[in-house]
Design a protein around this nucleic acid. Structure first.
Lengths: 127, 127
DNA sequence: TCAAATGTACGACAACTTTCGTAATTGCAA
DNA sequence: TTGCAATTACGAAAGTTGTCGTACATTTGA
């Protein structure tokens, strides 16, 4: 497993990636519709962004038919991991625990969520 | 407690803030020296960045003597919380638990850290 | 067929970020 | 006091981001 160049995406690009991760391969139209629910930007803006992302290889696309279908070209878990890692380093002095507690403290998670985490920790312990 | 405009800082600015949080009020020189350990940029670049941050009110400064002393003007915990919140929304589909588990899974935290978190969760439970 | 609808491509723009060179200022030492 | 070294101020440039208008291409259904 070789180390590769860190994924670098802007906030807007991350939003688009997130949609692609959630929905799977999608057209510009589909992405834009989803994006429009929470954001306010023109269709061509989304299109352009996705074209830029193509150049950056954050997404790939199938253009065999008229309508291009875009697919996330970076792994979700990996991207998440890298983002967190960078955040831990630059804002939490290298302590994942600090980040975790801050996340839980601030976000006021549901009981179900906390339970999930507790179970996860149990699993880790046994290993 | 009133809601205020979200803190908006770039990556470089975050690095500087982090140094100010860790070291307390510092001169440009001190910040730059720390920064130079991990980054490669000229002195005036750091200076300029900090001047911009002053304008943005991310830092304040005491210029009573020749050498200006800069202080972080935003609260660390608050900034951390906001960053995480945004990340949870845009990359983890609103689930703090997902973020937490990703952070722990990837980072391979120490036993001590995991124990810390476990205790923290116990504390939350009792409430 | 051919015009409307649906997509894509592309250029331009303003705002922002990061960088640095150079000028101006200030304090101190000799 | 005066000149040097340390600081700060500022302008400019290059790159990036997000935005959109408009032009071009393709499909399709009346």
């Amino acid at each position: 497993m070789q180390k590769q160049t860190p994924i670098k995406a802007t906030e807007s690009e991350l939003e688009i990636l997130n949609i692609l991760w959630a929905q799977g391969p999608s057209t510009v139209k589909e992405v834009h519709e989803k994006l429009s629910l929470t954001k306010d930007a023109g269709y061509t803006t989304t299109l352009k962004l996705m074209q830029i992302m193509l150049k950056k290889q954050l997404v790939s696309r199938d253009g065999s038919s008229k309508i291009h279908v875009y697919t996330a070209a970076v792994d979700q878990a990996q991207a998440q991991g890298q983002m967190l890692q960078r955040m831990i380093e630059t804002m939490f002095n290298g302590s994942a625990a600090q980040l975790v507690m801050q996340a839980l403290g601030n976000h006021r998670s549901s009981k179900a969520e906390l339970e999930l985490i507790r179970e996860y920790l149990e699993g880790k312990k046994k290993k």
